[in-house]
């Protein structure tokens, strides 16, 4: 990635769009919006009850990115991963706030449902790898994680829909995520991926 300058393993400064945006560089801010806008917007749309709510969420996410961009470390994750993580946290926070107030808003009809405009025939090998890791989860773990992630259901909603105790749903979700983390690690160890982040001599 041209926007990342990998440095040695000693934690030397690295330049990135996120660092530039955090420092207030207008070009980096613009690049940040150009590059990550679609990701943040799409994640926000999936998790937000209305388009307006998604727009608000996106603005909060970018403020978070500008405030926290200096924390980004290229040896730990790609910028996209970091951005998705910041987005996720903000969206969770907003969902919590929503659940605390009486919600009288009408929901968009398309919320939560899978789209006909899926990735089409262009299923990337790399995406398939991630999908395989998800497929290797125990069915109950996979189902809970996908219901939560793709369909945006809360654990309470999943418990109700699946007639499971809330604690069981929580356990499935947490253990599923723990297993997913292990599986991604195994995939990398088997040489199934190019360790992009290790280019700069990062410790393995």
């Amino acid at each position: 990635m041209s926007d990342r300058t990998a440095a040695g393993a000693g934690g030397a400064a690295r330049t990135s769009i996120l660092h530039g945006a955090a420092a207030g560089d207008p070009n980096s801010v613009r690049a940040c919006v150009d590059r990550f806008g679609a990701l943040v917007w799409s994640l926000a749309r999936r998790s937000s009850p209305t388009r307006e709510d998604a727009e608000d969420a996106v603005q909060e996410v970018f403020l978070d990115l500008y405030r926290n961009g200096a924390r980004y470390d290229a040896t730990v994750a790609s910028e996209a991963t970091f951005v998705a993580m910041i987005t996720r946290r903000r969206l969770i926070d907003r969902a919590r706030r929503r659940s605390r107030r009486l919600d009288t808003e009408e929901l968009d009809t398309e919320i939560g449902g899978p789209s006909a405009n899926g990735p089409g025939a262009d299923v990337c090998a790399e995406a398939s790898m991630a999908a395989r890791a998800i497929a290797d989860l125990r069915p109950e773990q996979r189902e809970v994680l996908l219901l939560s992630t793709v369909h945006g259901l809360t654990h309470e909603e999943i418990a109700e829909a699946r007639n499971l105790p809330l604690g069981t749903v929580k356990t499935h979700a947490r253990r599923g995520l723990i297993r997913l983390r292990e599986l991604l690690g195994e995939t990398a160890s088997e040489g199934g991926t190019k360790p992009v982040a290790a280019k700069g001599g990062a410790p393995s």
Partner: peptide, 17 residues
């Protein structure tokens, strides 16, 4: 970050902002 990866891997539609 794993959860973030899951988020992206399961995105079915990317639309421009």
């Amino acid at each position: 970050l794993t959860a973030a990866a899951l988020d992206i891997a399961t995105l079915e539609k990317i639309e421009p902002m």
